[in-house]
Simulated assay, not measured.
Amino acid sequence: MASISRRPDGIWRARYRDQEGREHSRHFGRKVDAQRWLDEVTAAILTGLYADPKAGKVTFASYYQGWSSRQVWVRSTRLSFDRAVETASFRALSIRSIRTSQIEAWVQQQVSDGLAPSTIGVRFQQVRSVFRAAIRDRVIAVDPCIGVRLPRKRRADAAMEIPSTDQVALLLGVRTRFRAFVALCAFAGLRRGEAAGVQVGDIDFLRRTLTVARQLQRADDGQMVAVPPKYGSERVVYLPGSLVEMLADHVARWCPGKDPARWLFSDSGTPWHDNRATYLWRRASSGAGIEGITLHDLRHFYASGLIAAGCDVVTVQRALGHASATTTLNTYAHLWPSAEDRTRAAASGLMATVLGLPADSLRTDETRLRSD
């Protein structure tokens, strides 16, 4: 419902009611301007681009507080979103007034601060999800993040550091109780928080399995708290016999008692916090004479081993606790054999069958020809 009327002072008053029955009005000196405004509003309503002009006055930070309180998030997700919004230079502005140029300035500031492109990308997507929620709520009509360019990420094959088998062997040669922690990351693919959160009862020594049921995170007060793993990361990991034996030796030496809920890695019953694990990692890698390798790189070592052994995408996804196979492919696609590799290997096997020669000899001949 919309109408235009002329007041006694000659000013034209245009008004309409929105979809929720609230009345809105504006005043114009000319009737044609009033009609143009009503036409624009009507078109916005019909095309789904209408936004409540009063709702758009709320600040970005205020809208985020209300929206985030309704989201079903795990604690780590909420903290991540909170950090992203806290860095937004436009958070105190009305959400309707924020322009694309201000989003670009925020991204550029993060680049100048030396943040990794992946970190900037995550923060950008989190902030953008707030704008998209505001569009669904009819608070704003257009997403100001459209067209914003992000810093280019390095290719996964260039950015990923995978320890060599010799490096992992040197790390395991350091005979301390941290040795089992390293082994869990290298041969079970656990994240740091997941390894720190393992309890003795999570290990089935007979079936040689490990149930990843929790991870440790630092709370606001600095204490470590046990929380569920990342979304999709609750899983059962199938352990090699040698790792089971190593864990059994670790339990016998460092985990006295019979309570299945006792921590696999602790100091006097208190589980290791993230700083403790990082300190022990630096000490172990320094003792082994290894530089440039992080604790998380052991997870890449595990994944690369599964792929080299011929495991398919879904198997690797489940072993690593990725939420989807897409995540696995985005991270490790470059490690799988290409179509050319598979074609060449199949042709070598076919030729070896026809000629009655071992396939290895053909591969050796191919290598020799390429080097000549």
Rank of each mutant, 00 (worst) to 15 (best):
M1T: 07
A2T: 05
S5P: 00
S5C: 09
R6V: 13
R6W: 03
W12V: 06
A14S: 05
R15M: 03
Y16P: 02
R17T: 11
E20I: 06
R22S: 09
H24Y: 15
H24D: 03
H27Q: 15
H27N: 14
R30I: 08
R30F: 10
R30Y: 11
D33T: 13
W37R: 01
E40H: 10
A44P: 06
T47G: 03
Y50Q: 02
A51P: 09
P53C: 03
A55P: 05
A55V: 09
T59N: 00
S62M: 09
S62K: 08
Y63W: 13
R70T: 14
V74H: 07
S76H: 08
S80I: 02
F81Q: 01
R83C: 02
V85Y: 01
S89T: 07
S89I: 00
L93Q: 09
L93I: 04
T100F: 02
T100P: 04
Q102T: 06
Q102V: 06
I103C: 00
V111N: 00
S112P: 02
I120K: 03
G121A: 02
S129K: 10
S129V: 05
R132E: 03
A133S: 13
A133Q: 15
R138L: 00
V139W: 04
A141C: 04
A141P: 06
V142G: 00
P144F: 06
I146C: 01
R149P: 01
R154S: 13
A159D: 15
E161I: 14
P163V: 10
T165W: 10
A169F: 07
T176L: 00
A180W: 09
A180G: 11
F181R: 12
F181T: 08
V182K: 05
A186F: 11
A186P: 14
L190D: 07
E194C: 07
A195F: 10
Q199L: 13
R208S: 15
T211Y: 03
T211K: 08
V212S: 04
A213R: 14
Q215V: 09
A219R: 09
G222M: 08
V225R: 08
A226D: 08
V227R: 07
P228W: 14
S233E: 07
G241T: 12
S242K: 10
V244P: 00
M246Y: 12
D249E: 14
R253G: 01
R253P: 03
K258T: 15
D259C: 12
A261W: 05
L264D: 04
F265K: 10
S268F: 13
W272N: 05
A277H: 11
A277F: 13
T278Y: 14
Y279M: 04
L280W: 15
R282F: 07
S286V: 07
A288L: 05
T294F: 05
H296P: 06
F301M: 01
Y302W: 08
G305T: 10
I307C: 02
V313E: 01
V313D: 02
R318C: 03
R318N: 08
R318F: 04
A319S: 14
T326E: 13
T327P: 04
T328W: 06
L329C: 06
L335W: 11
E340G: 07
E340T: 11
D341W: 13
D341S: 12
A346S: 07
L350T: 12
A352T: 08
A352L: 11
G356R: 12
L357A: 09
L357N: 03
D360M: 08
T364P: 00
E366G: 01
R368C: 03
R368D: 07
